[in-house]
Amino acid sequence: MDTLLKYKGIHPGIVLEREFKKRSLKQRPFAIAINEHPQTLNAITKGKRSLNTALALKIEEKMGLEEGILAILQTYYDIRIEKEKQHPETPNLALLRKSLFWDTAINHIDWKKQYKAVIKRIFERGNEIEKSEIIRFYGKQKVDDVLNSISRKPYTLSAN
């Protein structure tokens, strides 16, 4: 289970490739030994293909890994990818004026790391549409927290 927590959200192929290196195993002979196409195993270790349960069980058995660990890692990876789709890395840039970010290229902003500066700037200079988009992207609580930290009096967003 330590492996599960350590690698949660990482493609199981990357974990598998590390195991191969650690054990000095070659992928091609290993794939043939478990009656699998070497190209399939290679695509999995490069993170280009998902690892199905049947193959995960064959690999785990041959390598003496805990049963189900690779399949569970695949599931956690799939969950992470789905969450990233549901929560995009950037707000809807079509709703934000580029002129608000005159000092930087809007496409190069790290929206996760620079959230405080982004929220501050939008709420100082943005219009209602831009403010609404930032609230949708970051969440009302996070925006409230940032605005309260930069003002002396508590700031509460109006419920829209």
Rank of each mutant, 00 (worst) to 15 (best):
V143K: 03
I134F: 03
E61K: 15
T104H: 05
N52A: 06
Q141W: 07
D110K: 14
L70F: 04
I119E: 02
Y138S: 00
I119Y: 05
P29Q: 13
E61S: 08
H11S: 02
K22E: 08
S50A: 08
K6V: 01
W102T: 03
E60Y: 09
S151N: 15
G68R: 12
D103E: 12
G47H: 12
A56C: 08
G13E: 06
F101M: 06
T45V: 14
T156Q: 11
A117I: 11
K22Q: 07
I150H: 05
F137K: 10
M1Y: 09
K62H: 07
L55G: 00
T90Y: 09
L147G: 00
K8S: 05
T45R: 13
L5I: 12
P91Y: 14
A33I: 15
I69F: 03
Q141R: 11
K85R: 13
K46S: 04
M63S: 01
T3A: 04
L73D: 00
L96V: 11
K6P: 00
N42H: 13
D144G: 00
S132R: 15
Y155M: 11
V15K: 02
Y155A: 03
E130S: 02
W102D: 01
E82R: 15
L73P: 00
R152T: 11
L4C: 02
L96R: 09
I34Q: 08
L51A: 03
S149F: 12
K116E: 10
P38W: 11
N42W: 15
L100E: 08
I150D: 03
D2T: 13
N107T: 14
S132C: 11
Y77K: 07
F123I: 05
F123M: 03
H108Y: 09
I72W: 05
E128K: 14
R152Y: 12
M63L: 15
S132V: 11
I150W: 10
W111Y: 12
D2S: 09
N42Q: 13
L93A: 02
R125M: 09
L147M: 10
S24N: 14
E66Y: 10
A105Y: 14
K22I: 06
K140P: 00
E84Y: 06
R97H: 10
K6H: 02
I81Q: 06
I119Q: 03
L96I: 15
I72V: 09
A159T: 15
T104A: 03
E66L: 10
K113E: 10
G68W: 11
E128S: 09
F137V: 08
